[in-house]
Design a protein around this nucleic acid. Structure first.
Length: 721
DNA sequence: CATCACGCTGTTTTT
DNA sequence: CAGCGTGATG
């Protein structure tokens, strides 16, 4: 019993207690999924505070800001209110904060702008025309791929040559071009005072490595360090941790090698085991008792990890008894999968389960599109995490570009966006205007003086007027919301002109305006948007705590749990390019990804896979043995999973799901018939008319409201009206 | 030099 | 589906 009345021994098991009572010196906590890792961290923070350590001096590093905020909140409500003042954040936010203070030590201005992924890609694609592409027949990588290559090689600290040899063999003959691009991109960033996410980390490390005084100052400022999800750090971040703890060695890292799923950004779970090489007398604590899942679920997850070629640690166990075996359900096709899940959820609700208790997890954002349509048609509310970020949609980026040049008038990426929105200005004119502005420093008000301005460039004059408003007032005193409204007055007509579905986009901008209202200055507002972009409608704060289903990528679901979890997994095998399963390394990560997904489930786990491919455009069928899921479950002992098949053609009597055939079988004439001229409704595109029957499962529909008039649509996304 | 229509391709994950 | 390249048009 301690002074404040938290009886740690009563709320923690022995291993957790050991971690919580550890005060000074290095410690490595190996914490299996669901072993109360967060709980342990929380109580350890509380414990440190109760020991009299100033909360500000405790630094808690996590991978998402959301995770750190939640931890702090729980710590201050569960244990000690002073925990509210603990310093917490992500590696990136810490780096930003420190670099803004010490930029000059690195020869940078402290008003640098942060590039998000799409900014990065935009710069790259503007640089690509400057290089001569290889003459050979092989394709040059797309901008997304180039960005991946540059980012990952930077994070791995490998030379381009070495990197291509090991990771992108297919682009090896583009080596000279990629090297040039790498250099051009670096020069561009230097010239325009820009940093991408990788630069934040890399620059922080150099700062720490080269400046003992900064290091000492920081180790005084943060004298106790904790790092969550340590298996997801890359070697640069591990260096940062080492430097930060260099003076005092009060460092506790917590992680689980089986949950390392970020190798695409250079993360290496071996960091965990190298930790003991860099610090002496590391206390190692293993948390192996699982408090989350039923034993049958753990048998599955243990089984999955037993197939891994490298396993360092633990086998999870629980004291819980009972529970159903996880189910593997062959839903035959993707539409049937969506219908199955939707029906099942409805039944659960009828049984009294809350929607909040159910989650559907998947590999990539677009894997849930089909399901989303089905849920919408059935009126099931859901919140989706991960995948596409709404901040990356064109209208939001366009709008924010205007605000960005208000803060930083040299910001060429944003200028390009803005200018190209003006009628009759394209790539070439945009470039020449930017060059002109550079040569004549101080573009804001004087854009109207551009010599090329003429009667067909009326838009430029208006833009100049808008910007002159900002130019004349003190930028630091502009209230973000006010600035927002002014830009909106200018941008709204452009929005209407450009998008047929502008009301939706307008609404999203209005939501963004609400967020802007929470800030006192534009700078911070923009920084926060890049560093911690809202990833779901919930983050935007407009859907109040409504009870709804969770849809999430596995990556975004990390650290969370639900009583009932569905996993949708089978699509990987369908891509001709999905050679993942031939590459043992990627296969290993895929396995850990499945492990993370499965360990989210508390009571009920349902793996769904359509054994038959049915997407438009990808007509060929993939044998079940090649689908992603089956490669995980093939090697498992037969009694770990309960196998089932559903689907019209199979008429499986064992199926737990008996529906009238017409309700969900594509083979049965019924709701899936459409004929030419029929009126239909799509959940996203609204009403339309069937214009043509293209094939067995494909029709063409003419939509009035959609940006595009003609779309090939799958039957199941449509509703007859 | 900007823009538009058309056809082809290729699909991740996050700060 | 979007994002890119191409070729025609203004």
């Amino acid at each position: 019993m301690d002074r404040n009345g938290v009886d740690y021994a009563a709320v923690l098991n022995p291993a957790q207690l050991e971690a919580v009572l550890h005060l000074a010196g290095p410690a490595l906590v190996i914490a299996g999924a669901g072993s109360g890792k967060t709980r342990t961290l929380i109580y350890r923070v509380a414990r440190l505070v109760e020991e009299g350590i100033q909360p500000e001096k405790i630094l808690l590093l996590t991978f998402t800001r959301k995770a750190s905020q939640e931890m702090i909140e729980r710590a201050s409500s569960l244990a000690d209110a002073r925990c509210r003042f603990v310093s917490a954040g992500t590696f990136h936010s810490l780096a930003l904060q420190i670099l803004r203070q010490h930029a000059e030590a690195l020869g940078l201005s402290n008003s640098f702008t942060i590039l998000d992924r799409s900014d990065m890609e935009e710069i790259i694609s503007s640089l690509v025309p400057e290089i001569e592409k290889p003459k050979s027949r092989t394709r040059f990588p797309k901008r997304n791929t180039i960005a991946n290559i540059l980012s990952k090689s930077a994070n791995l600290q490998q030379s381009m040559e070495q990197f291509l040899k090991t990771e992108y063999v297919q682009f090896q003959d583009c080596l000279p071009q990629l090297q040039i691009l790498e250099r051009l991109y670096a020069e561009y960033k230097q010239e325009h005072q820009l940093m991408d996410f990788d630069d934040l980390i890399i620059n922080l490390r150099s700062l720490l490595a080269d400046n003992p005084d900064v290091r000492i100052q920081l180790s005084q400022q943060y004298s106790y360090l904790m790092v969550d999800e340590y298996q997801d750090t890359n070697s640069i971040q591990a260096d940062i941790v080492r430097w930060l703890a260099h003076e005092h060695k009060n460092i506790m890292v917590v992680g689980d090698d089986s949950q390392s799923i970020y190798s695409f950004r250079g993360a290496n779970y071996r960091n965990m085991f190298e930790f003991t090489d860099y610090f002496q007398d590391v206390k190692i604590i293993k948390l192996e008792e699982n408090f989350r899942s039923s034993q049958p679920i753990l048998s599955l997850t243990n089984g999955i990890m037993e197939q891994a070629s490298e396993q360092f640690t633990k086998c999870l166990f629980t004291n819980r008894v009972g529970g159903e075996r996880p189910r593997a359900i062959d839903t035959r096709t993707e539409p049937e999968q969506s219908m199955f899940i939707t029906r099942y959820i409805k039944e659960k609700i009828r049984e009294g389960q809350s929607l909040k208790d159910i989650a559907v997890l998947f590999r990539a954002g677009y894997h849930s599109f089909e399901l989303e349509a089905e849920l919408t048609r059935n009126g099931i509310k859901y919140m989706k995490y991960g995948g596409f970020k709404f901040l990356e949609s064109a209208h939001i980026k366009d709008f924010l570009a205007h605000l960005r040049v208000v803060v930083n008038e040299d910001e060429a990426v944003s200028w390009m966006r803005i200018l190209r929105l003006v009628k009759n200005v394209g790539l070439a004119k945009g470039k020449s205007i930017i060059k002109w502005m550079k040569d004549n420093h101080g573009p804001l008000g004087r854009l109207g003086d551009w010599p090329g301005i003429g009667k067909n460039l009326q838009g430029l004059t208006q833009l100049a007027e808008l910007l002159s408003i900002f130019d004349s007032s003190d930028i630091n005193n502009i209230n973000p919301q006010e600035a927002f409204k002014r830009v909106m007055a200018y941008y709204a007509p452009i929005l209407k002109e450009k998008y047929d579905d502008f009301p939706r986009r307008q609404k999203e901008l209005d939501q963004l305006l609400q967020i802007a209202g929470r800030y006192k200055n534009i700078d911070n507002f923009l920084d926060d948007l890049v560093m911690e972009p809202p990833t779901s409608s919930k983050d935007l704060g407009f859907d109040k705590e409504e009870e709804c289903l969770t849809l999430s990528t596995v990556h975004s679901a990390k650290g969370l749990e639900w009583p009932v979890v569905f996993i949708i997994w089978a699509m990987e095998g369908r891509f001709p390019s999905a050679k993942a399963y031939q590459n043992p390394l990627e296969m290993e990560e895929e396995r850990r990804l499945m492990y993370v997904a499965a360990t989210r489930a508390m009571d009920e786990l349902i793996l769904c896979y359509p054994s038959k491919e049915s997407l438009p455009g990808w007509q060929y069928e993939i044998p079940y043995s090649q689908t992603g899921l089956s490669s995980f479950i093939r090697g498992l002992p037969g009694d770990i999973l309960h196998y089932e098949k559903i689907g019209g053609a199979r008429k499986n009597k064992e199926s737990c799901f008996k529906l009238p055939a017409s309700d969900y079988s594509l083979d049965t004439p019924g709701i899936m018939d459409f004929s030419q001229g029929e009126r239909v409704r799509h959940p996203a595109f609204g009403p339309g008319v069937v214009s043509k029957i293209v094939g067995d499962k494909k029709i063409e529909v003419l939509f009035r409201n959609a940006g595009r008039k003609l779309l090939h649509i799958e039957y199941t996304t449509l509703e007859k009206i």
